[in-house]
Simulated scan of single mutants.
Amino acid sequence: MMSSNLITELSTINPTSEMPPNQTSGPNAPQINPYAAFDEFVRCLTLFTCLCGAVGNGIVLWLLTFHIKRTSFSFYVLNLAGSDFTYLFLEVIWVINYLIYRPNFQNIVNLLTNMGLHVTFTVGLGLLASISTQRCLSILFPIWYRNHHPKRGPMVVCGLLWILSLLLNPPKVYYCVVRFVTLSPSGCELMSKLSGTLMLSMLLLMTLSSLILFIRILWSAKKYKPKKLVILILLTVLVFLLCAVPHGINHSVFNWKAMYNHTFHEISYFLSCVNSSANPFIYFFIGSLRHQRLKEPLRVVLQRALRDDSDPSEDRGTSSRTDTTLDTAA
């Protein structure tokens, strides 16, 4: 019973779901909305957060695309930054449409933003699951990982995640969320179960592998200092669990009118944007640890944070030379 509820909550993430009868879809709508001032405050705060997050993810995209040599891990981060940037961009469009309230564009905005948000949320979850699982394998089985890790593995995984998300989410949004065309309940239930099963599997995989990483850090903390890359992954997963999962929980109880809470409903939207906005700040924070230089280029900081010493495509000589270069660059 709990698993079916979790599948439902993960497969119905929809920032434009119908509100309860006495609420409005915009500040200028004719109905009386007792939460109007609160809604506008939270949406303005969400808009500011999304804009900051979009700038941060845009910087990460720019640096990884044109200025930093790509590794298997940085390729995952590149795709994660792309999905987060798209998610935040769509949230900005939706919030602006809410604040200025243009009914003529309401339907098309709802359709496009819902499709994009479902796709990017699924891809982001899958990327975090892949990153944490790969890091877990490299720590538990380092020799096997270095000898058998496929060079094109990240490209295949990222491609499959985007394809699966594009195949499962847009039809579900079109027929069952926005309901441009009515579909039988059994068809909607099937699509929701497929999408929810995929997302639940990725969530469990991400949580389990991150838990193993955390236990391994605690076990070996007295002998070895934890690597920055492992700390970065754990922080990113922790932010996702704290900020993105509540967004899914909100929509799992949304259909139960007796359990609906408007304050939690609005704050969950804000937290979902915090999740997508936080990753660039985590990268630059981890990269700047123990390197307190005020004028250090962002490229150097990001490259240091994402350096993967267990990547089989990089030999140790190159890694040591890179360390020296990063430590002397300014």
Rank of each mutant, 00 (worst) to 15 (best):
H291Q: 14
G126R: 08
L190M: 11
L208W: 11
V157A: 06
S11T: 06
V42E: 00
K228L: 15
S288L: 09
C44S: 11
F284C: 10
C273T: 15
L127C: 10
Y101V: 04
R299N: 08
S288H: 11
R299L: 08
G153T: 06
K69N: 12
K223Y: 14
R216Q: 15
F285K: 07
F141D: 05
F73Y: 06
D315H: 05
G82V: 01
G53Q: 04
V237I: 04
I96C: 03
S319R: 07
D327W: 07
G26L: 04
G58T: 01
N279V: 14
R316D: 15
R216F: 11
C243N: 14
P185R: 06
L190T: 10
S276L: 06
P185L: 04
K69I: 13
M19N: 03
I212K: 02
A278Y: 00
L235C: 12
K193R: 12
N5Y: 15
S17H: 08
T182I: 12
R152E: 02
L45S: 11
L238H: 01
N255R: 08
Y269A: 06
L137F: 07
N22F: 07
P297A: 13
V177N: 04
S268C: 06
S83W: 03
S201K: 02
L160H: 04
T324K: 02
I267S: 00
N28Q: 09
A305R: 01
T8G: 00
T12F: 05
G116E: 10
H251Y: 12
L168R: 04
L294T: 11
L229N: 00
L203V: 14
C188E: 03
S210C: 11
P27H: 06
K227I: 13
H149W: 11
E91V: 13
I231D: 10
T46L: 00
W144Q: 10
L137M: 10
R290H: 14
Q106L: 09
S210L: 04
N104K: 10
L183Y: 05
T182N: 12
S11Y: 01
Y87M: 08
T113H: 08
Y101H: 06
Q303I: 12
F85N: 07
L47M: 12
L294Q: 13
S195N: 11
N5S: 12
L78R: 11
H148G: 05
I249V: 09
